[in-house]
């Protein structure tokens, strides 16, 4: 049962990711991205990373995907459904993709994957909270400063018109 569910999640993730890349309609890509994000959240759950799965849904679907949809809707030809996106500079792009593929493949082969059955953690939220407030306090605070900077930058940019 769990295995069937796992392969279902994998299939949903891969198929929808494929549609995101290949679809000619920007809106279709965005909606497929919804299923990709959900699939990745599902994969996190299979890795016992429940908090990460929740964050994935909250940030990527509730934040980033909606921002993308907003972007599409606010573009120039707002009422035309078929905003197409085509591939340009295929040669250069191909080289970059090949390089990226090689780097990722190298990383996957070289990583010492944890194959032993780890004990199933009961709820990761508390542990993550403790680590963020102790060992990783500095990166946590730096990230918050970065976000504050982005917030101020957005405010400054949007006020420019007035």
């Amino acid at each position: 049962m769990a295995e069937a569910a796992f392969w279902l999640v994998v299939a949903v993730t891969l198929v929808s990711a494929f549609i995101v890349v290949t679809s000619r309609n920007l809106f279709y890509s965005a909606i497929s991205l919804l299923f990709t994000f959900f699939g990745v959240a599902g994969l996190y759950i299979f890795l016992w990373a429940d908090f990460l799965a929740g964050v994935q849904v909250l940030i990527y679907i509730g934040g980033i995907l909606i921002l993308i949809l907003f972007g599409i809707m606010l573009t120039h030809k707002i009422t035309s459904v078929d905003i197409a996106h085509t591939s340009i500079q295929q040669g250069v792009g191909g080289i970059v993709v090949l390089f990226l593929f090689a780097a990722l493949a190298w990383m996957i082969v070289r990583t010492p994957w944890l194959v032993a059955a780890a004990p199933e953690p009961q709820g990761t939220a508390g542990e993550i909270g403790k680590l963020l407030m102790t060992d990783y306090l500095l990166p946590f605070e730096v990230a918050s400063v970065l976000l504050l900077g982005a917030l101020l930058g957005a405010a400054v940019l949007s006020r420019k018109g007035n």
Partner: peptide, 19 residues
Amino acid sequence: NLGIFYLLAVCSLGVVGLI
């Protein structure tokens, strides 16, 4: 065990359908 966090997260799905 993430109950309330889960509820807040999945509520954002409706917006996608709405758009």
